Simulated assay, not measured.
Amino acid sequence: MNWKTDYRSIYYLGAPEPDDIELKFEETALLVIDVQNTYRSRPDRDSLSAEEQARYDLWTPFHRRLDEVLVPNTADLLARFRSNNIECVHARIASHTKNGRERSLSHCKPGWNDLLLPKDDWESAIVPELAPQGDEIVVTKMTDSALTGSNLRLLLTNMGIRNVVCCGVFTDQCVSSTVRSLADESFNVIVVEDCCAAGSEELHHKELEIINMIYCNVMSSAELKAMMGL
């Protein structure tokens, strides 16, 4: 892809190409959002009803992207950031209480967003390939935005971070919400296209088009690595 011209919405048709971005290592952090065991867990398809199998099949492309694209690409970025002593930060959805009584309203509604993930349960843990190392910061949230739902803004500011590189799931939900919050707090935000995933490719690409150029710059991991010399 070409980050300067791709993912343009109607608002930015004909707009000039953005300037090159300088991402100083000491002012930059990689933020990996909500890549947790719960999103890898799947039932045995043969045990499901016909209706449940249809929903299962709709989610298969997401799971394939998660395992074959998002996780390996993000693991590579983490390794490169770590080898250059660039901050790596992790966010996860997890409740401090067993019954999740402190969850935000959006995480209590029936259906997809009814997220009860007690902090010590296997489901709430970050997937092993992307697990935090050493003293890397992990923020726990019960909101979509990692900034709104934690003290992340304070932590980033105290570390002198001005640029946040975002990866994770879901592109159109927690990633997007976090990106918008970061932008509103005047952080310079990069979203790495091939380190994110949504429930469908259509949702993934449409959300990137919506947030690109106003809340962030969207680019591939190859473009990011070339830009930063990683």
Rank of each mutant, 00 (worst) to 15 (best):
L31V: 03
W122K: 07
A54I: 08
S145C: 03
S150F: 01
P132W: 07
G149D: 12
A125S: 09
Q133D: 11
S83Q: 13
D67M: 07
S41C: 03
R55C: 07
Q53D: 01
C88E: 05
S106R: 11
A75C: 08
V127P: 10
L130Q: 09
Q36T: 07
R65K: 11
I161Y: 01
T97P: 06
D67A: 15
G111P: 04
A146Y: 04
G134Y: 00
V32P: 05
N37L: 03
G160D: 08
D67C: 12
V138Q: 00
W112H: 15
S47H: 04
M142T: 15
M142D: 13
S47F: 01
N113Q: 13
L30V: 00
L156F: 00
R42V: 13
E136L: 08
P118Q: 10
N37D: 04
V138W: 05
R82S: 07
E26M: 04
D34P: 14
T143E: 15
S145Y: 00
S104F: 10
K109M: 14
R153D: 09
G134E: 04
G149W: 14
R103S: 09
T143A: 14
D120P: 03
G160V: 10
R65W: 03
D67S: 15
R92I: 07
R162Q: 14
M142P: 01
P72N: 08
R103C: 09
R64S: 06
L78C: 13
T148I: 10
S145H: 00
I126K: 04
A91H: 10
